[in-house]
Design a protein around this nucleic acid. Structure first.
Length: 884
RNA sequence: GGGCGAAUAGCUCAGCUGGUUCAGAGCGCCUGCCUUACACGCAGGAUGUCGGGGGUUCGAAUCCCUCUUCGCCCACCA
């Protein structure tokens, strides 16, 4: 506690020890009797390694958690990890591939065991990494989306939705990833604008009397065409409806049908219909009883349903071959460039293939309706608000959610099919089914697993024990704030609202804060594949967790992206490190002076009476008060950068640059009042540490604990949040000390301008009277010392030669410099200064000469402008006289 | 194609309900300082048609319209 502190703050020497101490003390578990405040951590993938996006997301959550904890709320920040179906399976598949095997070689059971082994070994790494950045989550409650409790919740949700008719099995076109070999939801198929081509193909009429031209971006699908559709009212084709075409390449006769879905204005107005490979075509096929011919295998090669010469070809090779055959037959009308949106697998980037298959779906419209209503009635708040538009748009256009995945890693679908041919009953059950409940025959469980998001959308209550009615569930549901990346608004955030309303009857959160994305200086998203990432742990090692957090927080206003430079860590993180160091040294200085206080300041420094305070004391107390208000309001409004900025300015510009400099004579015993200065410095510094703790938890704790009178077990992380105190407001002190600062600044500027040696003292005149003079008189010694004066004269100067400055309120400052100065230089400076004032005066006269302004603007505004004009005019005259 | 947002110093961005923080901060740049808390520091300084054009207003970086350029979300015109 009393060992001397190093002049340079060394984060790595203290951070892990402090974190361990917080954990030992159990400070991150909810405690006390305050109103609960719940933040649900977006569960990172088990196999994830901490990246800057996690850094940002968890820093924001931690700032809010720590802020509310200090405000006395019973904070539960609930962490967990996500089994992340496809992502995790892919990782282990790659490991298996190194042994030259596929998952099919390994077999389902053994493969799942491998995944478990992998997850058990490396799965919690990210949690350790989150601790390195200071995350104050309640790790004792950490869940895993595949553990027993959450698995039970998943079954309960599936079965009860099924019983309500909201889960169904359907035969539809879904998004299929030919590399992951699974169905995907619409959200998992990322649309990307792509420059492609559109081929215009001629299909001859079967009777040889001409042809119909169709356009397609995927010519290979023509192998599965079973019709051509035209609009029923399209005069060009009306006479052809009902006739047949001879499909080239495959030589199949297909009908021409009329369907309203066809847009006669697009292309030729005739559409090839491939019911097995296009959702719109599927619908047309259904309306016209067309056969569906699936011409592709699961890995997107041409299937046995196509002519021999195409079988086994990759879909893109087949595309080339089909086009070539059309061209050779003279049936390729034209090829045009075509920009369109192409779906890609969100996990591996492979082009999605629309595929006809049997899948499980959730009927979304009944869930979406109340979720929309809760936004429209003002229950839900999005920060920033515009994210609410995205939410509404998505819900209004919602389509059913395909939840089955042809994977092995995940929650097995709780459906059993009777193997007996005459029974064939389907059983959907909360518990495992051994035999068919109808006929007692053998059953086979559905092979598929559920979308990983089907477990995470339940997390706000499943992580608290649902479907059991646990005390945790009663206490901590619903929560308040969700902090999330905008990418998972639809995957997760919106769905949690729907599930919360459906299963719990209440929205899980009222405030959804969607922060920005971490990008590089070219505004590209940081990613491993682009190689533009910054490793947060490296930053923690080199600059400290506080520096990392400060940079992330200060670099982001509500909902904007955070830009970091991967090639220049110094540029990105030095500011935070420097700030931590500044704090460290300010704290070190104050502490070292407490040691030389005549009596140790126990606990709260000795009570100081208002009458004992100097102008500077009153000023820093008032500034501190303003900072409490500003920072608290900013945290409440999620304006974390403003909160950090307010405390930064207070600590650096006010406390360190001015107040600490001002009190040095008192501290050193050169003038009386040392104990008052110590008390005020200690008090205001303590408040600032508490205000900053949510953003920079480590350095603030390290310093805070060292102040005398703190019990060994006291932690700033549960210290009370500073309360606004109207008695500390002091506009007069703010104005008076502000004048002192301006006078000192003006004299310093003159000294620098005229190259006065740093050690040399000068005289200075300040032309003030009345209250302003009294204020300067009270801080005379401060001005003399900080501006390095031999004498301060409050009044006009008879001397002419020297440096002049005019403060914004019109106060003149003059520093006589005798023969030492360059007269020519001074003349030009005087000229420039008087020109500047002339400009101000001119525009001011114009403004005040405007009758409209004088009559319409508020009186106080006009009055202020008048005063400015008077002061500027006077000072300009003074300068002009001097110049002569 | 539909919806939404952004453009301010060399860079990254604040600037919220029009008028005292109105033209700002940090970084970078220039000058001078190892002043016994801190050179990861101190003091001083330079830099802007607030994207273009129009409008509302006594007054616009701020509100409205329009153009330009970027970005995000959504979308079965084959």
């Amino acid at each position: 506690m009393t060992e001397p502190l190093a002049p340079q703050y060394n984060p790595s020497a203290i951070e892990s020890a402090l974190y361990a101490w917080w954990q030992e003390r159990g400070l991150f578990a909810p405690s006390g009797t305050g109103e609960p405040y719940v933040i649900m951590m977006p569960p990172p993938n088990v196999t994830a390694v901490l990246h800057m996006g996690h850094g940002l997301n968890n820093t924001v959550q931690d700032v809010l958690a720590r802020f509310e904890r200090m405000r006395g709320r019973r904070v539960l920040w609930l962490p967990g990890t996500d089994h992340a179906g496809i992502a995790t399976q892919n990782v282990v598949e790659r490991l298996v591939a190194k042994e030259g095997l596929t998952r099919f070689d390994v077999g389902r059971e053994a493969f799942v065991e491998r995944v478990w082994a992998y997850v058990n070994e490396t799965g919690s790494a990210i949690i350790e990494q989150l601790k390195a950045i200071g995350a104050s989550a309640d790790w004792s409650r950490t869940y895993f989306t595949l553990d027993a409790g959450l698995s039970r919740a998943v079954r309960e949700a599936f079965v009860s939705l099924y019983e309500a008719g909201l889960v169904y099995r359907g035969h539809y076109i879904i998004n299929w990833c030919p590399r992951c070999l699974t169905a995907l939801s619409n959200e998992e198929a990322e649309k990307e604008e792509t420059d492609g081509k559109i081929w215009h193909l001629r299909y001859p009429l079967a009777d040889g009397a001409g042809h119909v031209t169709v356009a397609t971006t995927r010519p290979e699908t023509m192998l599965g065409d079973t019709a051509v559709a035209v609009h029923p009212e399209d005069e060009r084709y009306r006479h052809l409806v009902g006739r047949e075409l001879l499909l080239p390449v495959v030589n199949r006769r297909v009908p021409i049908v009329a369907d309203d879905a066809v847009d006669p204005a697009f292309g030729s107005g005739a559409v090839k219909v491939t019911p097995a490979h296009d959702p719109a075509d599927f619908e047309i096929g259904r309306r016209h009883n067309l056969p569906s011919i699936d011409v592709m295998t699961p890995d997107a090669r041409i299937s046995l349903a196509a002519p021999d010469r195409f079988q086994g070809l990759d879909r893109f090779e087949a595309r080339t071959r089909v086009v070539a055959e059309f061209e050779a037959a003279g049936l390729l009308e034209k090829v045009e460039a075509h920009r369109h949106a192409v779906g890609h697998c969100y996990r591996c980037g492979t082009v999605i293939e629309p595929r006809l298959s049997d899948q499980w779906f959730v009927r979304m419209e009944p869930l979406a309706r109340p979720a929309l209503a809760k936004y429209r009635d003002g229950t839900l708040h999005f920060i920033p608000e515009r994210r609410g538009d995205d939410y509404v748009q998505w819900l209004e256009g919602i389509r059913d959610w395909c939840i089955s995945r042809q994977l092995w890693w995940g929650h097995r679908i709780p459906v059993w099919y009777c193997q007996s041919e005459h029974c064939a009953r389907t059983t959907v059950s909360r518990t495992d089914v051994e035999a068919c409940p109808a006929c007692g025959g053998a059953v086979r469980q559905d092979e598929d697993v559920l979308d990983t998001w089907f477990s995470s959308w339940l997390v706000p209550f499943s992580s608290l024990g649902w479907p059991d009615r646990t005390p945790d569930l009663a206490t901590y549901y619903p929560g308040h704030t969700l902090v999330s990346a905008p990418e998972i608004l639809f995957f997760w955030v919106a769905r949690m609202i729907m599930s919360g309303l459906y299963f719990m009857g209440e929205v899980p959160y009222t405030h959804m804060y969607l922060h920005g994305t971490v990008r590089d200086t070219q505004h590209r998203k940081m990613s491993k594949s682009l190689g533009n990432g910054i490793d947060p742990l490296e930053v923690v090692e080199r600059y400290g967790a506080d520096a990392l957090r400060y940079s992330l927080v200060s670099g982001m206003s509500v909902g904007t992206d955070v830009i970091l430079d991967p090639n220049d860590l110094e540029a990105s993180f030095a500011a935070g490190r420097n700030f931590a160091n500044k704090l460290w040294n300010a704290g070190r200085f104050i502490l070292s002076n407490l040691d030389r206080a005549p009596r140790p300041l126990a606990g709260a420094p000795r009570a100081v009476r208002r009458g004992e305070l100097t102008l500077a004391d009153r000023w820093i107390i008032a500034r501190c008060e303003a900072t409490v208000r500003e920072a608290t309001e900013a945290y409440e409004k999620f304006r974390l950068n403003e909160a950090a900025g307010a405390v930064y300015r207070f600590l650096w510009s006010d406390l360190a640059d001015w107040y600490i400099e001002q009190i040095k004579p008192r501290l050193y015993g050169d003038v009386p009042g040392g104990d008052v200065a110590r008390a005020v410095a200690t008090q205001t510094f303590d408040v600032a540490l508490r205000l900053l703790h949510p953003v920079m938890p480590f350095v603030t704790e390290a310093l805070w604990r060292r102040f005398p009178g703190r019990p060994a077990e006291a932690s700033i992380s549960v210290a009370p949040w500073p309360r606004p105190d109207a008695r500390a407001e002091d506009p007069a002190a703010l104005a008076d000390f502000g004048l002192v600062q301006q006078v000192v600044g003006a004299i310093r500027a003159i000294r620098a301008e005229y190259g006065v040696q740093p050690g040399q003292t000068v005289r200075a005149y300040v032309a003030v009277e009345g209250g302003a003079a009294a204020a300067l008189e009270r801080e005379r010694s401060t001005i003399v010392r900080l501006a390095k004066l031999s004498e301060l004269i409050l009044g006009e100067s008879a001397e002419r030669v020297g440096g002049n400055a005019v403060l914004p309120d019109g106060t003149a400052v003059f520093v006589p410099l005798g023969d030492a100065i360059d007269v020519g230089r001074e003349c030009s400076r005087l000229g420039a200064e008087s020109d500047r004032l002339a400009g101000l005066v001119a525009s001011q006269e114009k403004k005040l000469g405007n009758q409209q302004f004088v009559s319409r603007a508020p009186a106080d505004v006009v009055e202020r402008e008048r005063e400015k004009l008077v002061a500027w005019t006077e000072q300009r005259e003074v300068l002009i006289r001097k110049r002569e």
